[in-house]
Amino acid sequence: MTYKLISNGKTLKGETTTEAVDAATAEKVFKQYANDNGVDGEWTYDDATKTFTVTE
């Protein structure tokens, strides 16, 4: 399945996607992506749209 990340960081804003077997796997990928880009904030997940959002 395709999962989307919306980043509302102070230094990184935008969207990216990943293919993953489940939401937990996608979350690990996205949290590593955010960490690699210096984004640390509040996370939410919408199962209906398969979208994670991180806001700093």
Rank of each mutant, 00 (worst) to 15 (best):
K10E: 08
T2Q: 09
F52Q: 01
K50Q: 10
T25H: 12
Y3V: 02
Y3M: 02
D22G: 03
V21H: 12
T18K: 04
A23I: 07
T18V: 14
D22C: 05
F52K: 00
K28C: 09
A48R: 11
D36H: 07
G38C: 08
A20Q: 07
G41H: 02
T17G: 03
F30T: 00
I6M: 07
E15D: 06
V39T: 05
T55L: 08
A23S: 09
K4Q: 05
S7W: 15
L12H: 12
T18S: 04
D40M: 14
K31H: 08
S7A: 14
T53Y: 13
D40T: 14
I6D: 03
T25S: 13
G14T: 14
V54H: 03
I6Q: 06
A26L: 01
V29Q: 07
V29I: 15
A26G: 01
G9P: 05
K31N: 03
Q32L: 09
Y45A: 00
F52V: 00
E15N: 07
N37R: 13
E56S: 08
V39Q: 05
T51W: 01
N8K: 11
N35T: 13
G9Q: 06
D40N: 13
A48V: 11
S7V: 15
V39M: 12
T11G: 11
I6N: 04
Q32D: 08
Y3H: 03
K31G: 02
K4C: 08
T16N: 05
W43C: 02
K50T: 03
F30D: 01
T11W: 14
F52T: 01
A24C: 13
K4W: 13
T55G: 05
A20V: 04
K31A: 04
K50S: 05
G41M: 03
G41F: 04
V21D: 10
S7Q: 08
A24E: 11
T2A: 05
T49M: 06
E27W: 15
F30V: 00
E19K: 13
T16M: 15
T18N: 03
T53Q: 05
V39A: 04
T16K: 11
T55R: 06
D36W: 07
Q32G: 06
G14A: 12
T2M: 11
E27H: 10
V54N: 01
D40G: 08
T25C: 07
F30N: 00
D22M: 02
D36G: 05
S7C: 15
T55Q: 07
T55E: 06
D22A: 03
N37S: 07
E27N: 04
Y45V: 00
T53S: 07
K10T: 14
G14L: 15
D36P: 01
N8M: 12
K50L: 10
K10W: 11
T25D: 09
L12E: 07
T49E: 05
L12A: 08
T17H: 09
N37F: 11
N8G: 06
L12Y: 13
K10G: 12
T2R: 08
D22T: 06
T18H: 06
T17W: 14
F30K: 00
W43L: 04
G14R: 12
F52D: 00
N37K: 10
E56V: 11
T55S: 09
L5D: 03
T16Y: 15
I6W: 05
A23M: 12
N37P: 01
D46I: 04
T2W: 10
G41C: 04
A20C: 10
E42Y: 13
Q32P: 01
